[in-house]
Amino acid sequence: MTGWSIAEAARVLLAAEDAGAARGPITAEWPGLDVRTAYAVQDEALRLRLARGEKLIGIKLGLTSRPQQERMGVDRPVLAWLTDAMVLPAADPLPRLIHPRAEPEIVFVLGERLAGPGVTAAVAMGAVDRIHGGIEVIDSRYQDFRFAAPDTIADNASSSVFRVGPVGVAPSGLDLSLQACLLEVDGAIVDSATGAAVLGHPGEALALAANTLAERGLALEAGWIVLTGGLTEAVPVEAGSRIAAHFTDLGSVTVSG
């Protein structure tokens, strides 16, 4: 199609999400879509979500590993919005999605507002009220998960649904860089990682989020949920399968296809 705009891209991507229908990357039709414009698309999609009754509850980070960034041609992680419609209640199976993939996450719940610039990991951790284990299920609206960096940013970093585990731990005395996680698929351990997989320490991801939002005149708000980025590579969620993440101090979280 021709005549792409920020508003049109947001409408098309949200419609694809609602319909559970994959499409080709927008950059193939709109070569001028760059990272800055893609964030504007993301913000417009958030406006549409809020207009239909969703509530903003936090942010997520994506592309937190250096190999992922190199594949996408970016030099830092990307941010995306979380709304209450993305929360997967404790006992619910996954809704109908296009091609879901699950990844374990260390999740922060903020106790106070965190605003950049100049936020360090230590300062960021001081704003955290509690820490949970979680699983994010990503679901790109692009066919075969093939896209350029501006495509995934415009698509809210492949957001879908996420589940936060029931165990909440205060940050004091917890070394998150050593927090281990085992990823299980249908009873078999398929991967493992520690918190160091997220920029060396998840607090670095939180600080980066605050400082990146500050460039847009925004801040992380008290009570927000922050998904700090996948600890392992995302695994496909097949119909009837069970994915579990087991953390050293943060309990276990499961999702079912």
Rank of each mutant, 00 (worst) to 15 (best):
A51C: 01
L61Y: 08
E8N: 10
A214W: 06
G257S: 05
R11K: 07
E8M: 14
H132T: 09
P93Q: 09
V123Q: 14
G58S: 02
G230I: 03
I131A: 02
L50Y: 01
W81Q: 00
A207K: 13
F247W: 10
I153P: 07
A38F: 11
N156Y: 05
P25N: 08
A45R: 11
M86E: 06
D186E: 06
N211L: 03
L94T: 08
G217P: 10
A219D: 00
V164D: 04
P117H: 01
T254W: 13
T27V: 06
V137R: 12
R47A: 14
A244H: 01
P117G: 01
V123N: 03
G187S: 14
L206A: 07
G32E: 13
D144S: 15
A210D: 08
A210N: 05
L14I: 08
V87H: 14
T120A: 01
E103K: 02
L82T: 05
T64S: 12
E54L: 06
L174K: 07
L88M: 05
W224V: 00
Q42K: 00
R130N: 00
A15K: 11
A21K: 15
I189E: 06
G58F: 01
G165S: 00
V137T: 11
E238Q: 08
G126I: 03
G118Q: 11
D175I: 03
A10G: 15
S192C: 05
A45M: 10
L220K: 02
Y142P: 01
E112I: 09
G173Y: 04
G257H: 07
A127C: 05
A197L: 03
R23E: 12
C181M: 13
V109L: 15
G229C: 08
G217V: 04
T37V: 13
L231Q: 09
G257E: 06
R23A: 09
A124G: 05
G173V: 01
R141S: 15
G58R: 00
L213Q: 06
A115I: 11
L56F: 03
D129G: 03
R71T: 10
S160A: 15
K60S: 09
A205Q: 06
G203D: 13
P171W: 05
P236C: 08
G3A: 07
L14C: 12
T120Y: 04
H99P: 04
G165I: 02
R141D: 14
L56W: 04
R242A: 12
D18F: 04
L97D: 07
Q69V: 02
E136M: 09
A16S: 13
I135N: 10
G257A: 03
G230R: 04
R163Y: 10
L33T: 00
P89F: 04
P89I: 06
I138N: 04
D43A: 15
A91H: 13
P25H: 03
S177V: 04
S172E: 08
P171F: 05
L218R: 12
R11N: 02
V167I: 09
T120G: 00
R52K: 13
D84F: 03
D144I: 03
I153V: 15
L178S: 15
D249F: 11
G195N: 08
W30Q: 05
L220E: 00
D186I: 07
V235K: 07
A222V: 00
P89Q: 04
A22M: 13
